[in-house]
Design a binder for these strands. Sequence first.
DNA 1: ATCTTTTTTGCACACGTGTGCAATGTTCAT
DNA 2: ATGAACATTGCACACGTGTGCAAAAAAGAT
Lengths: 338, 338
Amino acid sequence: MPGRKISVSAKDVAARAGVSRAAVSRTFTPGASVSQETRSKVLEAAEALGYQVNHLARGLTSQKTGIVALIGADLATPYRSELIRVLTERLQASGRVAILINTDRSDSTVDVALQQAIRYRAEAAVVLSGMPERSISELCHRNGLRLVLINRDDAHTGSVQIRLNDAEAARVALASFLRAGCRRLALASSQAGTPSLLDRENSFLAEAEKRGLPVLCERLGPTSYESGLALGERLLVRAERPDAVFCTTDLLACGVMDAARHRFALSIPDDLSVIGFDDIEQASWNAYELTTFRQPVEEIGAAAVDWLSDRDAADGSRIIHLTAPMSWRKSVRGGNGK
Amino acid sequence: MPGRKISVSAKDVAARAGVSRAAVSRTFTPGASVSQETRSKVLEAAEALGYQVNHLARGLTSQKTGIVALIGADLATPYRSELIRVLTERLQASGRVAILINTDRSDSTVDVALQQAIRYRAEAAVVLSGMPERSISELCHRNGLRLVLINRDDAHTGSVQIRLNDAEAARVALASFLRAGCRRLALASSQAGTPSLLDRENSFLAEAEKRGLPVLCERLGPTSYESGLALGERLLVRAERPDAVFCTTDLLACGVMDAARHRFALSIPDDLSVIGFDDIEQASWNAYELTTFRQPVEEIGAAAVDWLSDRDAADGSRIIHLTAPMSWRKSVRGGNGK
DNA sequence: ATCTTTTTTGCACACGTGTGCAATGTTCAT
DNA sequence: ATGAACATTGCACACGTGTGCAAAAAAGAT
């Protein structure tokens, strides 16, 4: 056993300050009653000894840990890592700490991740991707674990869902293409089949059908740039090429755009208009200037953390609707249609 | 108080299984002695009740939490988010859990983050950016918190530093430019002044000086794509333009490349060769095809987590040297010089 | 100065787990 | 059958903190 841990405890501080161990505890408990004189003595001793309250013990006695689990896969994608950045910042600002659980591996389902969160008595879990089974709801509820589901379409008792206007955005995308004079429409998506992607896909297709417009539709692989490249090749290799592609995410769109330019020598937006979704950082890069819908990550983060801080919000399930505003850039003919 | 927590405890499981509370504990403690019959009864009862071991209590009694803190700023940049992805995956595979501490805000220094890690009795902290003050070393050591410093240049007792061959890479970059026939050299960096960036800068400049070659050198803003754009403008606006730019990170390089193409209508690599560092995902995108050095994130993650799992490694400080292999793409004239 | 109200303090219990140890039970060897 | 070795079990203590409560001290009102 290389380095036997000898952390300073409240008992050590009490001995040095000449007060009771309870006085030390009260000094570090917001709102507890302790005289100014005792407080000074305790703080001085704590500083001298390097005392740090043991949050494990505190969590045990107070039944509050301040721990919030962030659960998801593909943690390095632009949109997800941005959301993690925002959430950690806001959780910290509200006195909490985030544990990050990666569900990339097949033995790390969302349910397994939630169980791990319960083992650490996390007060909440923010599910960034994947969907909990209904059966785990009861376990979460019984352990006081509140669920925040981002872009998921199935409510759990006591949870909050944060949803975007995916369907509306897809309709706006279609209208933008038509206004730009595009007539040969295409839809590019992955095979992920997540609720958000499906909303965008279905709405785009339904709106086109309502207007009697055919849509060339391709779904392929995971939601990545590489899939976008391949989708571009599939869509653009035809004799009658589309002149507008709605890509359900920006990563796919960047791939489609690169395929169009580098494989087919097309000009964007003259030959092909492209609209994505997410507004990842790369969408604004000069190489893309992609018109897209901006994931309101700051609002999502604020909504999630505010709901967690709202003591009256623990009952029933709730849906928070947020809007993904359009970011006009240069990938659509005619530019800003406002 | 909306939902008073009523988690199932070992006591509840013991009552249901008709055994002692200690038998329950032993059943869930690897290596502890418990008969097959008792184990079955306990597991059955635990399953029926949805029992999850309380890791807070376990951490208190066993003085081991399995918690590892990941500490850093700019969590959403491609390289950092990739490293976080790898670290979380490997930590989980070794039975640990990661807490993620974001140091973007001015009130969240690395030292404050380390104190938070100590409060949760984390067994280790992986510092992804920023540098701990020397004074906190003793506190970490006393609380059994081991430090993993990634690309930092100052050792702390009992810590491990994982360093790359930044200097060597910069020399290879220079040699590659020369071999490609480039003669007007430039260096583009940010003002971050981190150990890795400085190594790359200093080595590139020193090697050029050794060969009697002048280098046009610009440093600007944070380490971002936007800084790269601005650096590109500064470097390329001159009458005598450089024909080769070593950018200390890929984000800067993408910005420089976009400035060259979109602001100065230059062709890469014909008019300008560019080499970056990191091999972020975007470096391989068709819009960039950037020649760069690949951050060995899998190796970094493995080295960090393996060191944490190595019980004999707790004493002294250590440096692990890893190599960033070159990724040849199309941003240098003449291509692969091997 | 006396009484009332408020603040402060220390004690002892709780939270939920792991484990040393004595007692008990089981298995193996003679 | 007996003794030795090994496995198992429950008890009671520890870990480090927050807090209810009774007692004491301090502050305010008359």
